[in-house]
Design a protein around this nucleic acid. Structure first.
Lengths: 242, 242
DNA sequence: ACAAAAGTGTTTCTATTACACCCATGG
DNA sequence: CCATGGGTGTAATAGAAACACTTTTGT
């Protein structure tokens, strides 16, 4: 029974917790993803202190005892981008002993999906942050490269059950933009016709009368999400298999 | 820049970490799942201290600073079941402020998939642990009910990409047992013939000459995993869509 | 001989793929 | 008038679903 008291401390009365157990530093790191051109991008900063000064890093922060971890992650993203109501999801908690050489730190990672707007670009510049295409990300500090990969593979899996892709696009978007996004996430080409058909028959897109003439002379129709239908589909669960 | 120093402490040199930041209690809780009869079961203990004395609880433990979190979870499961080499996976980290009323505790949950063997049943009894069918789980302490549900829904999603089901069955099992397991996980009936055909054409099962006569007079053939083929299939990724 | 579970084949239908041509427009 | 990207229909194929009967054997 000695062993169980060591390892199953739920068996220890709350009053005893603090005296018996030691606490640990906890941080959050955010994989902030946005979509630009034909590729998914991630927001990175330069780590400003030795011994990793100048190396690229995800954006994170420590969790203060009076802050919810999800909230800590949200504040990190808000601080960096100036955006609220960002779509975020917890990915994984990294708890290896030597992941941060100088300290024992447990870190929970999140991904955040944001629409890259012109205003945003300048904001992130004040923080010396840079958008990297996910296919061209440099080596990152600590285990951040691993974190990023885990976040991306989680995104690829989850986006099939819950098309978060729309979180990455502006309100109005063309079918080509949507397809480029999914191509970038999945890392492979998607057939134009079949893609359009599948998306349309889900009934979650509203075709607008407006056209976007930025990329062709003919112009391509803009779409927006039919939020009601989208919610219905989310609730009953669906496969966005492409 | 004051704000960024508060919320983006990666910008703070490692040397400053400890003095600037406060640490938090971190625990792990394990959703130990096993399969018995026709239903998935979860292992619960009675919480032995006030104010939650006698309420049912998942099995957990605090993470000591010198212990990896995955390892902490593994030790918890080993202590409880006497089993090593258990299939475990991290599910989620719960960091709300008031989830444990008396303390600030951040908890990472795991699921563990184990084969319920006769020897095991007696071992867990010494710890006053009880197996509950997942459809008949009582209300649990703290946010453990929520944790359990999250683990189960994660399992349901993940088991389609990586048939962890085999972790829950003995070495040799009948097709009916396998089907019962998947029915219990998915919570719906699966057509006998189509199920058999799909599983067989994956080529990951070896049909033995042996029969199990426990459940019928005719007897049903036993199968075991063809581990080589299974690994190949895992590596290239596959959908266990039923 | 019958009850109880195991095991097996075929048809129907739906969904996915693969494929090639016309459209609209700005330059 | 032509180059460029936008947009659409159809046929072939593969996979999923639905279905009912035969087998074995202990009692």
């Amino acid at each position: 029974m000695n062993r169980i008291n060591n390892h199953l401390p739920n068996l220890v009365s709350p009053k005893v917790y603090h005296s018996a157990e030691q606490s640990i530093l906890h941080s959050v790191d955010c994989v902030i993803l946005g979509f630009q051109g034909t590729e998914l991008h991630v927001l990175l900063i330069r780590f400003p202190y030795d011994p990793f000064r100048g190396h690229w890093s995800l954006i994170g922060g420590f969790v203060k005892p009076e802050l919810n971890i999800d909230e800590a992650a949200r504040i990190t993203v808000e601080t960096m981008t100036g955006l609220s109501n960002v779509y975020m999801e917890q990915v994984h908690t990294f708890g290896d002993l030597d992941r941060v050489p100088s300290e024992r730190v447990i870190t929970t990672s999140y991904f955040a999906l944001i629409r890259i707007e012109p205003t945003l670009v300048s904001l992130t510049k004040t923080f010396d942050a840079t958008w990297f295409p996910v296919s061209k990300v440099p080596l990152l500090v600590y285990d951040h490269s691993f974190m990023l990969n885990k976040a991306l593979s989680d995104l690829r899996r989850k986006i099939r059950f819950q098309p978060m892709g729309f979180e990455l696009l502006p309100e109005k978007f063309t079918m080509t933009e949507l397809r480029n996004l999914y191509q970038s996430v999945f890392g492979r080409e998607l057939e134009k016709r079949n893609f359009t058909r599948k998306v349309m028959q889900m009934g979650i897109l509203k075709k607008l009368t407006e056209k976007d003439k930025a990329t062709s002379k003919k112009g391509s129709f803009l779409f927006c999400l039919n939020k009601k239908n989208y919610q219905v589909l989310l609730d009953k669960g669906f496969l966005f298999d492409m």
